[in-house]
Protein backbone atom coordinates (compact mmCIF):
# COMPACT_ATOMS: atom_id res chain seq x y z
CA UNK A 1 0.00 0.00 0.00
CA UNK A 2 1.07 3.51 -0.73
CA UNK A 3 1.72 5.85 2.10
CA UNK A 4 2.62 8.68 -0.20
CA UNK A 5 -0.25 10.26 -1.99
CA UNK A 6 0.23 11.99 -5.27
CA UNK A 7 -2.09 14.87 -4.49
CA UNK A 8 -3.42 16.61 -7.55
CA UNK A 9 -1.33 14.41 -9.82
CA UNK A 10 -3.90 11.73 -9.15
CA UNK A 11 -6.32 13.41 -11.54
CA UNK A 12 -4.30 13.16 -14.76
CA UNK A 13 -3.12 9.74 -13.69
CA UNK A 14 -6.67 8.57 -13.02
CA UNK A 15 -7.84 9.95 -16.33
CA UNK A 16 -4.97 8.15 -18.04
CA UNK A 17 -5.65 4.94 -16.11
CA UNK A 18 -9.36 5.32 -16.73
CA UNK A 19 -8.74 5.79 -20.43
CA UNK A 20 -7.07 2.39 -20.46
CA UNK A 21 -9.43 0.64 -18.05
CA UNK A 22 -12.79 1.98 -19.14
CA UNK A 23 -12.21 2.44 -22.86
CA UNK A 24 -11.92 -1.20 -23.95
CA UNK A 25 -15.66 -1.98 -24.22
CA UNK A 26 -16.19 1.31 -26.07
CA UNK A 27 -13.33 0.43 -28.38
CA UNK A 28 -14.53 -3.06 -29.27
CA UNK A 29 -18.16 -2.08 -29.72
CA UNK A 30 -17.31 0.99 -31.80
CA UNK A 31 -14.87 -0.90 -34.03
CA UNK A 32 -17.44 -3.63 -34.53
CA UNK A 33 -20.15 -1.11 -35.30
CA UNK A 34 -17.74 0.67 -37.62
CA UNK A 35 -17.47 -2.47 -39.76
CA UNK A 36 -21.22 -3.00 -39.74
CA UNK A 37 -22.05 0.58 -40.62
CA UNK A 38 -19.42 0.73 -43.33
CA UNK A 39 -21.32 -2.11 -44.99
CA UNK A 40 -24.45 0.02 -44.99
CA UNK A 41 -26.33 -1.10 -41.92
CA UNK A 42 -26.80 0.21 -38.40
CA UNK A 43 -26.93 -2.34 -35.62
CA UNK A 44 -28.31 -0.55 -32.58
CA UNK A 45 -28.61 -3.90 -30.84
CA UNK A 46 -24.98 -3.87 -29.78
CA UNK A 47 -25.97 -2.74 -26.30
CA UNK A 48 -27.81 -6.04 -25.96
CA UNK A 49 -24.89 -7.87 -27.55
CA UNK A 50 -22.50 -6.27 -25.09
CA UNK A 51 -24.59 -7.35 -22.10
CA UNK A 52 -25.11 -10.84 -23.53
CA UNK A 53 -21.36 -11.06 -24.14
CA UNK A 54 -20.63 -10.01 -20.57
CA UNK A 55 -23.06 -12.56 -19.19
CA UNK A 56 -21.98 -15.47 -21.36
CA UNK A 57 -18.29 -14.76 -20.80
CA UNK A 58 -18.83 -14.75 -17.04
CA UNK A 59 -20.94 -17.89 -17.16
CA UNK A 60 -18.53 -19.85 -19.34
CA UNK A 61 -15.54 -18.68 -17.35
CA UNK A 62 -17.28 -19.74 -14.16
CA UNK A 63 -18.28 -23.14 -15.51
CA UNK A 64 -15.06 -23.96 -17.34
CA UNK A 65 -12.57 -22.14 -15.16
CA UNK A 66 -10.97 -20.60 -18.23
CA UNK A 67 -11.58 -16.90 -18.81
CA UNK A 68 -10.30 -17.12 -22.38
CA UNK A 69 -12.97 -19.67 -23.17
CA UNK A 70 -15.37 -17.11 -21.77
CA UNK A 71 -14.05 -14.46 -24.14
CA UNK A 72 -14.53 -16.84 -27.05
CA UNK A 73 -18.06 -17.66 -25.93
CA UNK A 74 -18.84 -13.96 -25.69
CA UNK A 75 -17.57 -13.46 -29.23
CA UNK A 76 -19.63 -16.34 -30.57
CA UNK A 77 -22.76 -15.12 -28.77
CA UNK A 78 -22.14 -11.70 -30.27
CA UNK A 79 -21.71 -13.14 -33.74
CA UNK A 80 -24.98 -15.05 -33.38
CA UNK A 81 -26.78 -11.88 -32.36
CA UNK A 82 -25.19 -10.18 -35.37
CA UNK A 83 -26.40 -12.99 -37.61
CA UNK A 84 -29.90 -12.62 -36.18
CA UNK A 85 -29.89 -8.90 -36.88
CA UNK A 86 -28.55 -9.34 -40.40
CA UNK A 87 -30.93 -12.23 -41.04
CA UNK A 88 -34.01 -10.25 -40.10
CA UNK A 89 -32.77 -7.18 -41.95
CA UNK A 90 -32.27 -9.14 -45.15
CA UNK A 91 -36.04 -9.59 -45.39
CA UNK A 92 -37.66 -6.96 -47.58
CA UNK A 93 -38.85 -3.68 -46.05
CA UNK A 94 -37.35 -4.29 -42.64
CA UNK A 95 -35.96 -1.29 -40.84
CA UNK A 96 -32.53 -2.02 -39.38
CA UNK A 97 -32.89 0.57 -36.62
CA UNK A 98 -36.15 -0.94 -35.37
CA UNK A 99 -34.64 -4.44 -35.44
CA UNK A 100 -31.64 -3.11 -33.56
CA UNK A 101 -33.79 -1.67 -30.80
CA UNK A 102 -35.69 -4.95 -30.53
CA UNK A 103 -32.44 -6.89 -30.28
CA UNK A 104 -31.10 -4.48 -27.71
CA UNK A 105 -34.09 -5.21 -25.47
CA UNK A 106 -33.94 -8.92 -26.23
CA UNK A 107 -30.23 -9.09 -25.47
CA UNK A 108 -30.41 -7.28 -22.15
CA UNK A 109 -33.56 -9.11 -21.09
CA UNK A 110 -32.18 -12.51 -22.03
CA UNK A 111 -28.88 -11.78 -20.33
CA UNK A 112 -30.63 -10.73 -17.10
CA UNK A 113 -32.79 -13.84 -17.23
CA UNK A 114 -29.98 -16.29 -17.91
CA UNK A 115 -27.54 -14.39 -15.72
CA UNK A 116 -29.62 -14.59 -12.51
CA UNK A 117 -27.66 -17.47 -11.01
CA UNK A 118 -24.36 -15.88 -12.03
CA UNK A 119 -24.52 -12.78 -9.85
CA UNK A 120 -23.28 -14.48 -6.72
CA UNK A 121 -20.53 -16.83 -7.91
CA UNK A 122 -17.04 -15.57 -8.59
CA UNK A 123 -15.63 -16.56 -11.96
CA UNK A 124 -12.00 -16.75 -13.08
CA UNK A 125 -10.86 -13.35 -14.38
CA UNK A 126 -8.64 -12.34 -17.23
CA UNK A 127 -5.06 -11.69 -16.19
CA UNK A 128 -3.42 -8.29 -16.53
CA UNK A 129 0.04 -7.62 -17.88
CA UNK A 130 2.16 -5.48 -15.65
CA UNK A 131 3.63 -2.70 -17.77
CA UNK A 132 4.46 -0.59 -14.77
CA UNK A 133 7.44 -2.63 -13.58
CA UNK A 134 9.79 0.27 -14.27
CA UNK A 135 8.01 2.57 -11.87
CA UNK A 136 8.16 2.47 -8.10
CA UNK A 137 5.06 4.62 -7.75
CA UNK A 138 2.26 2.20 -6.93
CA UNK A 139 -0.37 4.42 -8.53
CA UNK A 140 1.47 4.33 -11.84
CA UNK A 141 1.92 0.60 -11.58
CA UNK A 142 -1.79 0.17 -10.96
CA UNK A 143 -2.70 2.36 -13.92
CA UNK A 144 -0.40 0.33 -16.14
CA UNK A 145 -1.84 -3.04 -15.32
CA UNK A 146 -3.18 -3.54 -18.79
CA UNK A 147 -5.34 -6.29 -20.13
CA UNK A 148 -4.44 -8.04 -23.36
CA UNK A 149 -7.88 -7.29 -24.78
CA UNK A 150 -7.11 -3.59 -24.63
CA UNK A 151 -3.92 -4.16 -26.62
CA UNK A 152 -5.79 -6.30 -29.13
CA UNK A 153 -8.36 -3.56 -29.51
CA UNK A 154 -5.67 -0.96 -30.01
CA UNK A 155 -4.06 -3.20 -32.64
CA UNK A 156 -7.35 -3.82 -34.46
CA UNK A 157 -7.97 -0.11 -35.05
CA UNK A 158 -5.02 0.55 -37.42
CA UNK A 159 -5.44 -2.90 -38.92
CA UNK A 160 -9.03 -2.07 -39.77
CA UNK A 161 -8.03 1.30 -41.12
CA UNK A 162 -5.53 -0.39 -43.39
CA UNK A 163 -7.97 -3.13 -44.36
CA UNK A 164 -10.69 -0.67 -45.37
CA UNK A 165 -8.22 1.22 -47.48
CA UNK A 166 -6.19 -1.42 -49.23
CA UNK A 167 -7.73 -4.88 -49.08
CA UNK A 168 -10.31 -6.51 -51.30
CA UNK A 169 -12.56 -7.22 -48.34
CA UNK A 170 -12.36 -3.65 -47.18
CA UNK A 171 -13.30 -2.45 -50.63
CA UNK A 172 -16.25 -4.84 -50.80
CA UNK A 173 -17.60 -3.69 -47.46
CA UNK A 174 -17.22 -0.07 -48.49
CA UNK A 175 -18.89 -0.71 -51.81
CA UNK A 176 -21.86 -2.36 -50.13
CA UNK A 177 -22.07 0.63 -47.83
CA UNK A 178 -21.67 3.34 -50.44
CA UNK A 179 -23.70 1.87 -53.24
CA UNK A 180 -25.52 -1.43 -53.05
CA UNK A 181 -26.17 -1.23 -56.78
CA UNK A 182 -22.48 -1.01 -57.57
CA UNK A 183 -21.76 -4.04 -55.41
CA UNK A 184 -24.52 -5.95 -57.12
CA UNK A 185 -23.23 -4.91 -60.54
CA UNK A 186 -19.87 -6.32 -59.56
CA UNK A 187 -21.60 -9.62 -58.90
CA UNK A 188 -21.52 -9.63 -55.13
CA UNK A 189 -24.37 -10.35 -52.80
CA UNK A 190 -24.94 -7.26 -50.70
CA UNK A 191 -26.91 -9.23 -48.14
CA UNK A 192 -24.09 -11.70 -47.67
CA UNK A 193 -21.52 -8.94 -47.25
CA UNK A 194 -23.71 -7.23 -44.69
CA UNK A 195 -24.38 -10.51 -42.91
CA UNK A 196 -20.67 -11.08 -42.49
CA UNK A 197 -19.98 -7.50 -41.51
CA UNK A 198 -22.72 -7.57 -38.88
CA UNK A 199 -21.50 -10.89 -37.52
CA UNK A 200 -17.94 -9.61 -37.20
CA UNK A 201 -19.31 -6.47 -35.55
CA UNK A 202 -21.31 -8.59 -33.11
CA UNK A 203 -18.26 -10.75 -32.42
CA UNK A 204 -16.23 -7.71 -31.43
CA UNK A 205 -19.05 -6.26 -29.33
CA UNK A 206 -19.41 -9.58 -27.49
CA UNK A 207 -15.71 -9.52 -26.68
CA UNK A 208 -16.14 -5.97 -25.41
CA UNK A 209 -18.77 -7.35 -23.05
CA UNK A 210 -16.43 -10.06 -21.81
CA UNK A 211 -13.97 -7.35 -20.81
CA UNK A 212 -16.65 -5.78 -18.60
CA UNK A 213 -17.46 -8.93 -16.69
CA UNK A 214 -14.05 -10.60 -16.69
CA UNK A 215 -11.67 -7.71 -16.21
CA UNK A 216 -13.07 -4.32 -15.31
CA UNK A 217 -15.20 -3.73 -13.25
CA UNK A 218 -14.86 -7.48 -13.28
CA UNK A 219 -18.08 -9.13 -12.19
CA UNK A 220 -21.47 -9.84 -13.63
CA UNK A 221 -24.39 -7.78 -12.46
CA UNK A 222 -27.34 -6.16 -14.11
CA UNK A 223 -26.13 -2.61 -13.96
CA UNK A 224 -22.85 -3.57 -15.60
CA UNK A 225 -23.18 -1.93 -18.97
CA UNK A 226 -25.36 1.03 -18.04
CA UNK A 227 -25.61 2.18 -21.63
CA UNK A 228 -21.99 1.78 -22.71
CA UNK A 229 -23.02 -0.20 -25.79
CA UNK A 230 -25.34 2.47 -27.05
CA UNK A 231 -22.77 5.15 -26.29
CA UNK A 232 -20.25 3.23 -28.36
CA UNK A 233 -22.66 3.05 -31.30
CA UNK A 234 -22.97 6.82 -31.10
CA UNK A 235 -19.19 7.04 -30.92
CA UNK A 236 -18.96 5.67 -34.44
CA UNK A 237 -20.88 8.59 -35.84
CA UNK A 238 -18.83 10.87 -33.67
CA UNK A 239 -15.68 9.24 -35.07
CA UNK A 240 -16.87 9.64 -38.65
CA UNK A 241 -16.72 5.91 -39.39
CA UNK A 242 -12.95 6.00 -39.11
CA UNK A 243 -11.43 3.17 -37.02
CA UNK A 244 -8.51 5.31 -35.86
CA UNK A 245 -10.84 8.04 -34.69
CA UNK A 246 -12.90 5.34 -32.93
CA UNK A 247 -9.78 4.51 -30.95
CA UNK A 248 -9.17 8.10 -29.87
CA UNK A 249 -12.84 8.68 -29.12
CA UNK A 250 -12.98 5.53 -26.95
CA UNK A 251 -9.91 6.62 -25.02
CA UNK A 252 -11.41 10.06 -24.50
CA UNK A 253 -14.66 8.53 -23.21
CA UNK A 254 -12.79 6.20 -20.89
CA UNK A 255 -10.76 9.06 -19.49
CA UNK A 256 -13.83 11.24 -19.10
CA UNK A 257 -15.57 8.49 -17.10
CA UNK A 258 -12.69 8.53 -14.63
CA UNK A 259 -12.76 12.31 -14.25
CA UNK A 260 -15.71 12.58 -11.84
CA UNK A 261 -14.47 10.12 -9.20
CA UNK A 262 -10.87 11.32 -9.55
CA UNK A 263 -11.78 14.96 -8.94
CA UNK A 264 -13.78 13.99 -5.87
CA UNK A 265 -10.86 11.98 -4.54
CA UNK A 266 -8.63 15.05 -4.51
CA UNK A 267 -11.30 17.11 -2.82
CA UNK A 268 -12.95 18.89 -5.75
CA UNK A 269 -16.41 17.93 -4.69
CA UNK A 270 -18.73 20.52 -6.09
CA UNK A 271 -20.75 19.59 -9.11
CA UNK A 272 -19.82 15.93 -9.29
CA UNK A 273 -22.98 15.22 -11.24
CA UNK A 274 -21.66 17.60 -13.86
CA UNK A 275 -18.32 15.79 -14.02
CA UNK A 276 -20.10 12.48 -14.24
CA UNK A 277 -21.88 13.88 -17.27
CA UNK A 278 -18.55 14.83 -18.84
CA UNK A 279 -18.55 12.16 -21.57
CA UNK A 280 -21.95 13.26 -22.80
CA UNK A 281 -21.10 16.94 -22.71
CA UNK A 282 -18.01 16.06 -24.71
CA UNK A 283 -20.13 14.26 -27.31
CA UNK A 284 -22.54 17.15 -27.67
CA UNK A 285 -19.74 19.67 -27.93
CA UNK A 286 -17.90 17.78 -30.65
CA UNK A 287 -21.12 17.07 -32.54
CA UNK A 288 -22.00 20.75 -32.53
CA UNK A 289 -18.50 21.83 -33.53
CA UNK A 290 -18.20 19.39 -36.40
CA UNK A 291 -21.74 19.74 -37.70
CA UNK A 292 -22.66 21.92 -40.58
CA UNK A 293 -26.05 22.55 -42.13
CA UNK A 294 -24.40 23.00 -45.52
CA UNK A 295 -23.24 19.44 -46.02
CA UNK A 296 -24.04 15.92 -44.83
CA UNK A 297 -21.80 14.18 -42.36
CA UNK A 298 -18.47 13.55 -43.97
CA UNK A 299 -17.51 9.92 -44.14
CA UNK A 300 -21.06 8.63 -43.71
CA UNK A 301 -21.69 5.55 -45.83
CA UNK A 302 -24.29 6.54 -48.41
CA UNK A 303 -26.41 3.41 -47.91
CA UNK A 304 -27.02 3.99 -44.19
CA UNK A 305 -30.69 4.45 -43.42
CA UNK A 306 -29.91 7.65 -41.52
CA UNK A 307 -28.19 9.30 -44.48
CA UNK A 308 -30.25 7.92 -47.29
Amino acid sequence: MADASLGLWTVPLAVFGGAIRVSTPFLFVSLGECITERSGRINLGLEGTLVMGAMSAYGISYLSGSPWLGVLAAGITGALFGALHAGICSLPRVNDIAVGIALMLLGTGLAFFLGKPLIEPTAARLPAIDFGWWSDVPQVRAALRINVLFLIGVAIAPLLYWAFKTTRWGLLIRTAGESADAARAMGHSVLLIRLRATMVGGFLAGIGGSFLSLFYPGSWNEGLSSGQGITAVALVIFARWDPMLCLWASLAFGGAAALGPALQSVGITSGYHLFNAAPYILTLAIMIITCSPKRTLTGAPAELSITR
Binding site: R21, P217, S226, G260, P261
Partner: peptide, 13 residues
Protein backbone atom coordinates in the same frame (compact mmCIF):
# COMPACT_ATOMS: atom_id res chain seq x y z
CA UNK B 1 -20.45 -0.55 -11.42
CA UNK B 2 -17.96 1.27 -13.63
CA UNK B 3 -18.16 4.46 -11.54
CA UNK B 4 -17.82 2.44 -8.35
CA UNK B 5 -14.73 0.71 -9.70
CA UNK B 6 -13.25 4.03 -10.78
CA UNK B 7 -14.05 5.55 -7.39
CA UNK B 8 -12.37 2.61 -5.67
CA UNK B 9 -9.25 2.98 -7.78
CA UNK B 10 -9.10 6.75 -7.30
CA UNK B 11 -9.37 6.37 -3.54
CA UNK B 12 -6.60 3.79 -3.44
CA UNK B 13 -4.47 6.03 -5.64
Amino acid sequence: PVKEAEATNSLID
